[in-house]
């Protein structure tokens, strides 16, 4: 342990507080998120979306089959940064909760309801013995009867509603970009373009649809769609034509 004597014993079990009220294992879980692939969520009046940067892992990995954007239900999509297997499990759980809501009430689950269910699980894993916290931040983007919704859930189980939120490696750069360029009254097209531009601008080298995945839901259709390679390519082309990115 690289701490001084006073801190050394407080990360052996996650259920133990340090004297200054911190739970080290939960804070380490945030570190997994910080090292994750850059993931952005944003919402405008008309649409909510998630965009991620996909990284080259190895030439032998079939990257076309790596999925980073997930449909939770017709009206909600999500993505995450951090430990992929932890993320996958929470996505599965969210899907199940969304289906159960439809089963019980014959109506789509509100986005916050789903976020709360996922965060209940995350919270439990910061308190129970013999477990470790989830090393992921999951972003949920959706549309419900309150309009567009965007939430980011932390490993601690805390969640907040955002206009735009970025997690992962280059979260700071993307957040700065969003602070400068974000408007709430964007239309669907503008929202998609801004999201893809933000992620494209942090990609090392040439941005391409191979390295970007995106999904969006608009208030009119209320259907979350994962964008195809060619759709992302044409957005990149447009952005390049406008001089916003270099291809």
């Amino acid at each position: 342990m690289s701490f001084g004597l006073s801190a050394a014993a407080y990360d052996r079990a996650i259920t133990i507080f340090s004297p200054d009220g911190r739970i080290y294992q939960v804070e380490y879980a945030f570190e997994s998120v910080r090292r994750g692939w850059t993931t952005l969520g944003l919402k405008s009046k008309k649409a909510a979306m998630v965009v991620v940067e996909k990284k080259k892992i190895s030439p032998l990995v079939d990257e076309n089959q790596i999925q980073k954007i997930f449909k939770i239900d017709d009206h909600i999509g999500s993505s995450f940064a951090g430990i992929a297997s932890d993320g996958r499990v929470l996505i599965e759980y969210a899907r199940q909760e969304a289906l159960l809501h439809r089963l019980y009430y014959d109506e789509p689950a509100p986005v916050e309801y789903l976020v709360k269910r996922v965060c209940d699980v995350k919270q439990a894993y910061t308190q129970h013995a013999g477990v470790r916290p989830f090393g992921v931040a999951v972003i949920f983007a959706g549309v419900d009867d309150q309009g567009t919704q965007l939430y980011m859930t932390e490993p601690s189980g805390r969640y907040l509603s955002y206009y735009a939120v970025a997690v992962g490696e280059k979260a700071n750069v993307v957040s700065e970009f969003m602070e400068k360029n974000y408007r709430y009254d964007m239309d669907v097209k503008e929202t998609i373009k801004l999201g893809i531009q933000a992620i494209a601008s942090v990609i090392e080298g040439k941005p391409s649809s191979e390295l970007i995945e995106a999904g969006y839901v608009d208030v009119d259709s209320k259907k979350f769609v994962i964008m195809s390679r060619s759709e992302i390519d044409s957005v990149l082309q447009e952005l390049a034509k406008e001089g916003k990115i270099k291809l």
């Binding site: 089963l103 019980y104 009430y105 014959d106 109506e107 509100p110 309801y113 709360k116």
Partner: peptide, 21 residues
């Protein structure tokens, strides 16, 4: 419970579905 969780009254359709289950 629905009202506390969702912040609005349950609709007739949802209550009927719940009763059905």
């Amino acid at each position: 419970r629905y009202e506390l969780e969702h912040g609005r009254e349950i609709k007739a359709r949802s209550l009927a579905k719940l009763l059905s289950i």
